[in-house]
Nucleic acid binder design. Structure first.
Lengths: 360, 360
DNA sequence: TTGTATGCGTTATCAT
DNA sequence: ATGATAACGCATACAA
């Protein structure tokens, strides 16, 4: 009765396409064993590589598996081994975050997880921290990866309480006991300052994320800013910082204020990737050529996007791929669980949007 | 031995934070039953609402569940019920697709699935169609949702072969037997033509997706185009169509060619959402005001983005939320599996980027 | 190197 | 309205 329609599946060749094909009920490990003339445990071990199987039997078993198109039942495996081979990925819902980067990280996590023979379950903040409790508590997932970690993230307490394997993409205030990976935003800020200083700029502006980002999760935004400002001080650069919301008008306002307050500004460092396009457009229409009149350096965009704009952007990209892969490695890899903080070094890609300052 | 570290978990108060808390081994249904003084089957039925339970016992059981913090083991459930309560979401990897929309749909699918007490498993095209075979064959997922469906999508054959519950976001050439949901792009094209005709435009240009999109998956792009062109003909509009790759320089080239070939063009319909920003910038810097000199109508952006640009865009948004929810409904809802094609009606949001043609 | 037997935690089919 | 019990399909400790 699992497939009610099978009852009147009389294979009437006239009727329209009948979606209810009698689903070839899955073959089981026991059937494979019989087919290969071995015991169930042997088949199991062939599949999981748990013990030395003589080449001849291994071959017979493998043949049977292929022939019958056998696929082990995930639920049964999870029950018997108490391992679901699923890692939960907690994604944010925030509107003020750069979505393409999130997606890239999610995809990187998924492909990396597959390499470790795991699948990825999506959980959203919609469920709140309880979502984590649920997937871990039911044994649905045996590892959790947190994206977009805030400085004081309420999900972290749940992770600690449950003692579930986990890794964080982002750096919380207290990473104690939890492996983390993030771009070293402080170093990125410093690197940006260095690049501009090297080119001879003396007065620069940092156009940051929206104010809400600073209020809530001062993490990466704050680190970038201070890394940048510290290095500016060391190199004798005059720097100002302006938060920038993700709207065209917001960007326009910020840009106007920057050149009003500091007319001598010759370079912009932009962290709000969503606003890079608008800013370039605004600069152009206000008669400032990039990079002849003003240099632009982006922090955090995905690299393909940076290379698609015009002029091609000098930028410190967000290593979405690495972030995802490392997060998986941290939670499923060799020394999984080793609490440690991995700060990925920023890489500066110099293209066309930065140059010496005018008259520099 | 499941948690080797427990051996040397001597609760040394000196040592640093020890991540290996003896994980409170999950309580089982049997324990709940004992705690409540009922049989396991009763507990099971309370949880699944499978039979009439007297209010008093239901309460006792519920109390026991809460008290023990019981969470049913997902694997055991899946094994016993042969239902995983997981729906697999097959996401594309393509670079030429609008990522924010994909992410929005994925999130909509996830929240909708939760409403039906299901979780969402991510599978990428990285695995190819075999990924679907795997998750369905192992019983990991008992339903599959395909995103970014191509006209002749190889994944569809797998779905039919397996007879797995499925729904498609997008419209393939032959949807026979598979429930689909998509924006009615033909109607969207027609609606765009109507709006411009109503405003008095006589010569318009359709700036489409990259050529690769047309070659591969002529689906939505082709439907939009023909819906637009047909209606233009009916309304006496002169229309041209130009594909447009997702690069700034590509957009610049296309725009230049359009006004070269048809200097009298007074309106642009843009389907490549990623290029809307650049196009607006290009128009501005080429001295054309929007909408005074040229109207711009976007097809397919997410609505928040359309309202953030400047001028705010008149647009026919992609109903990401609806698409995701409907797809879930189609595969998990009341009359799940009913093969049917749902074409969501386009909604035109009129803002600031369209107006009467100059001198119109 | 391989086979046997038991248990994993739930659901579902019987009884009562 | 509730209880006993047999699957569910696999992994694994143990025996051979």
């Amino acid at each position: 009765m699992q497939h009610p329609a099978a009852e009147h599946d009389l294979r009437d060749p006239h009727g329209p396409y009948d979606p209810y094909q009698p689903p070839p009920k899955a073959t089981t490990l026991a059937e494979v064993a019989r087919h290969a003339g071995v015991s169930p445990s042997t088949v199991s071990c062939v599949i999981n590589g748990k013990r030395n199987i003589s080449p001849p039997t291994r071959l017979r078993v493998q043949a049977a598996i292929d022939e019958l198109g056998y696929l082990p039942h995930a639920g049964a495996r999870a029950l018997a081994s108490s391992k679901s081979r699923i890692v939960a990925l907690a994604v944010p819902l925030r509107a003020d975050l750069y979505v393409p980067a999130m997606m890239q990280i999610a995809i990187a996590v998924t492909t990396a997880a597959r390499r470790h023979d795991h699948d990825v379950l999506l959980i959203t903040n919609h469920e709140g921290p309880e979502g984590i409790r649920r997937v871990a508590g039911t044994g649905l997932a045996d590892a959790v990866i947190l994206m977009d970690v805030e400085l004081h993230d309420e999900r972290i307490a749940v992770l600690r309480e449950l003692g579930v394997a986990a890794s964080l993409i982002g750096l919380p205030a207290d990473p104690e006991g939890l492996p983390c990976v993030d771009l070293d935003f402080a170093a990125a800020g410093a690197l940006a300052a260095d690049h501009l200083a090297d080119l001879g700029h003396r007065q620069v502006a940092f156009i940051g994320m929206g104010e809400g980002v600073y209020r809530r999760r001062t993490g990466f935004a704050e680190r970038t800013r201070s890394g940048f400002e510290d290095r500016c001080r060391e190199r004798g650069l005059r720097a100002i910082h302006r938060p920038c919301d993700s709207t065209y008008d917001g960007a326009a306002g910020v840009l106007a204020r920057v050149f009003e307050d500091r007319p001598g500004t010759t370079a912009l460092v932009v962290q709000n990737e969503a606003m890079i396009g608008p800013l370039l457009g605004l600069l152009r229409s206000s008669g400032r050529e990039v990079p002849q009149d003003v240099s632009v350096l982006a922090i955090g965009p995905d690299e393909p996007a940076a290379r698609q704009s015009s002029p091609r952007l000098t930028s410190i990209g967000l290593p979405a791929h690495d972030l995802g892969h490392r997060a998986v490695e941290l939670v499923l890899g060799e020394n999984a669980g080793e609490p440690g903080v991995i700060m990925l070094p920023p890489r500066l890609a110099v293209w066309e949007s930065t140059a010496e300052p005018p008259g520099g």
